[in-house]
Design a protein around this nucleic acid. Structure first.
Length: 895
RNA sequence: GGACACUUAGCUCAGUUGGUUAGAGCACCUCGUUUACACCGAGGGGGUCAAAGGUUCGAAUCCUUUAGUGUCCACCA
């Protein structure tokens, strides 16, 4: 009986997690300024949490993000970095506003915005956003995140709003932000513009009409959108198209559905002569493509569709005020009766729809604010080590250089290409939105008696410059403020605060889902390179999307959502976190099921029981500061320590390369196989390993901590180890020597035992094993001292078989020359087959060596081949020669 | 239409510059409750690495072609 006798057989996560989290939070270790001294002196390491939208609760995608980021932060903290993880939330402008609107409508309010007015409505949104934040923060804590709550940020808080205004002014002064009358994506449902990224393409059925404007017009055109044709200014054909060549340059005045149009026939390379009639009716106001053509040919723009998706007065008489669908039908009838409708064809068409709400998106010309990505401006800072202050560049160039130069490293690499492709096709970014929730555009106009806004006088200001000024009613795209997230969170542009936090920027890594590479990652690069002249982060790690067992997206309508809040009480946070990290690779979607999480719950419990076993062994001994006790160890202990050092080295290496899954798998194998199945089992026979076991536990807990913070911290405390696991020093590993005799010997031993177990299991015999120890002069290691009785003991007990010793003459007086165990007593290895294989491989390798050596001596070859190639060849040659040596040694061993 | 991936055990996936007999988890089969753990232990079966060709002493890995799957981007009026 000792102080650990009462520990339960199964680990109960739910009873300890909250308490542990509270202790961490209270101790202040989440805050870099309160970390132990070694961290204070360490290099800064900062992650800014991608701020979850304040639209409700977190889902598995967020949980993945949190699990990975916390892993990184904990790993770096234990390694002695001055770690800062900044939590925060995003106001998410349109998403949140729409959500609240829907909630209010559900409660019976018909048109909430109209009913409440801007101020009251916004109050409702703010209230909802606040509640969301509380829920989200609670969930982030549940996930065990070691983020610095004293630095919590919000995209819409005072400091961040100030940063937004500051940025807007900078960009405006540089001519990067500009007000312009251009075609934008318009969502008629929510009455706002949308960025290109907020528009989705949906395949829908459509009628393709082929017709002429009137009976006298010579060229037929096709369209699925006849209602826009009132705004046509030209018919474009390919300049080489012989059918229409002669018309180019002429102007016609057809009467289309009662409206007289002015149609110029123009030649443009963009027209595909093979599609439809080979002629395109150009509608500059309602198609981005057409607008490009119109610009090339100096055509006017006349809008014929209004913000409500109904026709404007410009269309004339019969059609004014009709909705798009009504107009479409009526025009078709009209064309038919006029005898100019040549054909009607049902086709599948790609229709742009709003990502939120799903309404068909109209392309309308409007006066809006834009960030111009191709516009040249004078740099305010030396930038990216390539440009000097004052040089003229465009935002696009900055965005490309940041990644191309290697200043930013994207994991996985293939997203580089996707990123470049996107940047190269980037258009100007429309940043004004006609919604209420968000950063109001900080532009003020001098009001006139007339209500229409006159822009003669305009100024940028955070607050009202005077009574006669009115503010632009629009708000900014939510990504404008999130684009600044890597540095606005650090206090920019507030001088004092920014200077204090300057060395946390660039952030060490941005960890997020690949689905927002464009939305967010690209825009952060834009903002940071523009405003600071440096990248926002050095690495980008993109995780995959969480899908259900069958690979489907999780959605409410499918009812296949796994909610972290349900799973955590059931399986424990550590198990949930492991399930999101193990078996996943960057950029690859994750299939998640409860069964998988259950598996990791089982592993958590395994770790618990390993610990419990060790603690029961040590009893009441003081283990505040365990050490490896290396001097009193036996062969088995030395094997284990070596194995452990190797695992530490490998896991550390993998973690620093973002190979989380591989690192965790290696750790699990080590924990389960090497420690639990072998070392612990042997320790039941070879007594006196208590201190080694404690050391093993001490190391193991530290290694697992970044993955499973709760259970490790809990056991750490139970054991009475010094300090907290969260700030413990990350263990130090080392490479395994190329050939390590004790290690090899133990592997052989494992193999022997496995084989004996198989014999017993398959043939039901209890073999009396005769083991011969063959002495091998091992050139590579001469330091092995093998205690034979020890081996016999392990063999005998671990496999419950009788062992008959058989030593060569002189044993064991020859210890110290290097010994490997050779087994032939059971003929478990098919020696003949093995020999054959070795012979074959030797032949191959020897042939290669001869060939390569010849080549390397051939002067003609050497004169032609670049140095790089010969160096690589020499390296390979050396490898092959080493391998040959090893094979020869093995052959000798087999006799 | 363009781009990027993927295709490895019944399922989900690893496999990092080409190199012992291609791995893991789950599932399956057999056996086992001696005080760490049945959320367990021991053992086992199962893959011509999508197909074909090429480079190489050697290919799941590099190249070419084909087939299938997925994702992103663009969009035809």
């Amino acid at each position: 009986m000792n102080r650990f006798s009462d520990l339960q057989k199964t680990y109960d996560a739910s009873s300890v997690e909250d308490r542990i989290y509270a202790n961490w939070e209270k101790s202040g270790v989440f805050n870099p300024d309160q970390l132990p001294e070694r961290n204070q002196a360490g290099d800064p390491y900062c992650i800014t949490m991608p701020p979850p939208n304040r639209t409700g609760t977190l889902h598995m995608g967020h949980a993945t993000m949190l699990a990975i980021e916390d892993l990184l932060i904990r790993f770096q903290r234990m390694q002695g970095k001055r770690t800062l993880w900044i939590p925060g939330t995003d106001h998410a402008a349109i998403a949140t506003q729409v959500k609240v609107e829907q909630l209010l409508m559900k409660q019976g309010m018909k048109n909430p915005r109209e009913f409440l007015g801007r101020e009251k409505f916004l109050e409702e949104v703010v209230k909802f956003a606040e509640e969301s934040k509380n829920t989200i923060n609670k969930q982030v804590r549940k996930m065990g995140c070691s983020c610095d709550w004293s630095r919590e940020r919000y995209t819409l808080d005072t400091e961040r709003s100030r940063a937004v205004t500051h940025m807007f002014k900078m960009m405006f002064d540089d001519g990067v932000i500009e007000r312009g009358y251009r075609i934008v994506n318009w969502d008629p449902q929510f009455q706002t513009t949308l960025s290109d990224d907020e528009v989705l393409i949906q395949e829908t059925k459509a009628k393709l009409l082929t017709f002429t404007y009137d009976a006298d017009f010579p060229i037929a055109i096709s369209t699925t959108r006849p209602e826009t044709k009132f705004g046509d200014k030209a018919v474009a054909v390919h300049p080489d198209d012989t059918r229409y060549k002669d018309f180019i340059g002429k102007t016609f005045h057809p009467v289309f559905c009662g409206k007289t149009l002015t149609i110029k026939i123009i030649g443009d390379e963009a027209v595909d002569p093979a599609f439809g009639t080979g002629a395109l009716g150009v509608t500059p106001a309602h198609s981005m493509i057409d607008a490009d053509i119109a610009e090339r040919h100096g055509l006017e723009t006349t809008a014929v569709i209004g913000k409500d998706a109904h026709l404007l007065p410009e269309v004339g008489s019969d059609f004014v005020g009709l909705s798009i669908l009504e107009a479409r039908e009526k025009i078709e009838k009209h064309l038919r009766s006029a005898g100019v409708l040549l054909s009607v064809e049902d086709i599948m068409q790609n229709l742009p729809v709003a990502e939120r709400g799903g309404a068909a998106v109209e392309q309308l010309p409007m006066e809006q604010w834009f960030i111009r990505v191709n516009k040249l401006f004078a740099l305010r800072n030396d930038t990216l080590g390539k440009w000097k202050k004052g040089e003229m560049v465009s935002l696009k160039e900055l965005m490309i250089e940041a990644v191309e130069s290697g200043e930013i490293n994207i994991v996985p690499e293939r997203f580089n290409k996707i990123y470049f492709h996107w940047i190269n096709h980037l258009r100007d970014w429309c940043i004004s939105r006609q919604i209420w929730f968000g950063h109001r555009i900080p532009v003020w106009y001098r009001a006139q008696a007339d209500t229409s806004v006159v822009e003669k006088e305009m100024m940028i200001s955070e607050t009202s410059p005077g009574e006669e000024w009115i503010q632009d009613p629009d708000t900014l795209d939510t990504w404008f403020s999130s684009g600044m997230w890597s540095f606005s969170t650090l206090g920019w542009p507030n001088k004092k605060m920014w200077e204090e936090h300057r060395d946390y920027h660039p952030n060490a890594v941005l960890e997020t889902g690949y689905d927002i590479l464009f939305f967010w990652v690209a825009r952060m690069i834009l903002m940071s390179t523009y405003a600071l002249g440096e990248v926002p982060f050095k690495n980008v790690y993109l995780h995959g999307l969480v899908r259900d067992e069958q690979g489907r997206k999780m959605s409410k309508s499918l009812g296949n959502i796994l909610d972290p809040l349900d799973l955590i009480p059931k399986y424990g946070t550590d198990a949930v976190r492991l399930s999101l990290v193990m078996g996943t690779t960057p950029g690859q979607d994750v299939r998640l099921s409860e069964a998988k999480i259950e598996g990791f719950r089982n592993f958590t419990n395994k770790l618990w029981n390993i610990s419990r076993f060790i603690l029961l062994q040590i009893g009441d001994a003081d283990v505040t500061n365990p050490t490896p006790e290396i001097n009193q160890t036996t062969f088995v202990d030395r094997w284990f320590l070596q194995r452990q050092r190797e695992v530490i080295f490998s896991v550390t290496d993998k973690l620093s390369k973002y190979q989380f899954s591989s690192a965790a798998e290696e750790l699990r194998d080590f924990t389960w196989n090497d420690l639990a199945d072998w070392y612990l089992e042997i320790s039941k026979i070879e007594k006196g390993k208590e201190m080694q076991l404690v050391w093993a536990l001490h190391t193991l807990l530290r290694l697992w901590h970044p993955f499973m913070p709760f259970v490790t911290e809990y056991i750490w405390g139970l054991a009475g180890f010094k300090g907290d696991c969260i700030t413990a020093v990350w263990p130090e590993g080392s490479h395994l020597p190329l050939r390590h005799s004790e290690y090899d010997a133990f592997r052989s031993l494992q193999e022997i035992i496995s084989n004996m177990r198989r014999l017993r299991s398959e043939q039901g015999i209890e073999p009396a094993v005769k083991v011969e120890f063959a002495l091998i002069a091992d050139a590579l290691s001469k330091d092995l001292v093998l205690n034979n009785t020890e081996i016999i003991c392990v063999l005998a007990r671990a496999s419950s078989v009788h062992v008959v010793e058989s030593f060569p003459a002189g044993w064991p007086s020859v210890v110290g020359t290097g010994v490997t165990i050779a087994v032939n007593a059971l003929a478990m290895v098919d020696i003949e087959k093995e020999k054959e294989k070795i012979a074959k491989e030797l032949t191959q390798l020897e042939a290669y060596v001869v060939l390569t050596e010849e080549k390397l001596q051939n002067e003609e070859f050497l004169s032609k081949a670049p140095e790089k190639v010969t160096q690589a060849m020499e390296k390979k040659l050396l490898e092959a020669q080493t391998k040959i040596q090893a094979l020869v040694a093995k052959r000798t061993l087999l006799g």
